[in-house]
Design a protein around this nucleic acid. Structure first.
Length: 403
RNA sequence: GUGGGAUUAGCUCAGCUGGUUAGAGCACUGGUUUGUGGUGCCGGGGGUCGCGGGUUCGAAUCCCGUAUCCCACCCCA
């Protein structure tokens, strides 16, 4: 038997209900915040991700579905959504057009990782990107939008917040951190030694207890922010307080993608196992220029749909539509004809076999129908049918023409 | 990529130290004496025991390999 590839799932039945329920809900929230849908290709030039996500990241370093196509192009399936949207933004010359541009998207992302609960090789994200605003109010709006979506889904969460600084304060901080790491280098784990070279900030959230005990003395980025970053971060907290959004400051929150600056945030759930991040995002003011666009401030986030699916509280499904059946073979053709007619406007379930009244009732329940319609030999003769409302149990007899 | 656990009917699982035709609940399906359900009663179908080897008179059960899922590391959505 041919099976689906590792880490790649089919979405159907009840899962699909939840999947589309979330996308519809999130899309309508995004539209209320003034965002417009954007669809970008699943396949992009590999260079796009190397330049945006960053060569030092795990995503680019070891998780990309990368290959050479028949035209000798080095391409890869997108591992995340932001890079493609930024590429489209620049390619459509919206950077030169100026103004504010807000987009939302949803679709498949691909990462060649070892699958586990909440971590797939093909997964789905819903995300938004906002271009042209350096105001911290936009950062706050992003966070409130995620909170809005999660609230409407009935999902509880913790919000973790940090500031990563900008090109004024981050490089200085990085240097001081590297100096610190070198001072304790003999005692830290192998992973941290590697991180010191690739992405020194990442040592701070090392799980190794010995490393953690050493890093208590490490310089904190939060204490090294320049005045602009500091005041934006303070303002962000103030706006969130003002709007009733609870958060925790996590000075070790480092986003895995190189392009973030200033505001970084992550929404986590304690109910879905170790892959607990359900949404993450932040500001990326330098990315547009890194990709050869005119410098444009930007901020965005992405949500992992599969991780949200099991947390979503679905609204109760009410019985809807019609069930229609025949009690004898002679009435079946009439039943089919009436059903076809009714399908112009309503959901109709038809049973093709003649059955007893009781058995048809059971069928109507299984179909989740609101109205039960049945035709037997008596009804066929008189050109009528029995219509019963299964919710309030009222029953009437009507002529075929009235159906 | 590294470690550990699991894999038996559509689903959730039982099957003791290897021993005749592998079970349960739910689901599905038929009937319940032609006419009122979701919540009655009786019956029925459905399993190459993940896959491939090996040990044995005999393997769902023991051993090896392999695939997938789960957990941890790593990382992120």
């Amino acid at each position: 038997m041919v099976k689906s590839l590792r880490g790649m799932n089919d979405i159907l039945s009840e899962d699909y209900e939840r999947f589309t329920y979330f996308i519809d809900l999130a899309s309508s929230v995004a539209q209320r915040y003034g965002f417009h849908f954007i669809e970008t290709p699943l396949l992009e030039e590999t260079a796009l991700f190397k330049r945006s996500v960053g060569e030092s990241s795990d995503i680019v370093g070891k998780e990309m579905y990368q290959f050479i196509d028949k035209g000798e192009n080095d391409v890869c399936l997108r591992p995340e959504g932001t890079a493609g949207v930024v590429r489209a933004f620049i390619e459509k010359k919206l950077d030169k057009a100026g103004g504010i541009h807000r987009f939302f998207y949803h679709g498949s992302m691909f990462r060649y990782e070892r699958p586990q609960k909440g971590r797939l090789r093909q997964f789905h994200q819903f995300g938004v990107e906002s271009f042209g605003l350096d105001s911290v109010y936009e950062d706050a709006t992003m966070i409130m939008m995620v909170a809005d979506i999660l609230k409407q889904c009935g999902i509880g969460y913790r919000l973790q917040l940090n500031s990563l600084g900008d090109q004024n304060c981050m490089p200085q901080y990085r240097d001081s951190l590297v100096k610190f790491i070198e001072s304790v280098e003999d005692e830290i784990c192998e992973d941290c030694k590697r991180r010191k070279e690739t992405n020194p900030i990442r040592v701070l959230d090392c799980k190794n207890e010995k490393c953690q005990s050493l890093y208590i003395e490490a310089p904190k980025l939060i204490n090294a922010l320049c005045s602009g970053c500091q005041s934006d971060f303070d303002k962000l907290k103030e706006i969130l307080d003002d709007n009733g959004i609870k958060y925790e400051i996590d000075t070790n929150l480092v986003r895995g993608l190189d392009y973030y600056s200033k505001t970084a945030f992550e929404f986590v759930s304690d109910n879905i196992g170790s892959q607990s991040a359900i949404a993450g995002g932040g500001r990326y003011d330098r990315l547009v220029e890194f990709l050869d666009g005119r410098p444009t401030p930007a901020v965005g986030f992405a949500m992992g749909i599969e991780r949200l699916m099991e947390l979503i509280v679905m609204p109760e499904t009410k019985p809807q539509g019609y069930y229609i059946g025949a009690m004898d073979d002679e009435s079946i053709d009439t039943v089919i004809r009436l059903a076809q007619q009714k399908r112009a406007t309503d959901k109709v379930t038809v049973d093709y076999k003649a059955k007893s009244f009781k058995n048809h009732m059971k069928g109507a329940d299984k179909a989740g129908a609101k109205y039960f319609c049945i035709i037997g030999s008596n009804e066929l003769k008189s050109g009528t049918m029995i219509v019963k409302n299964l919710e309030d149990k009222t029953e009437t007899t009507i002529a075929f023409g009235e159906f």
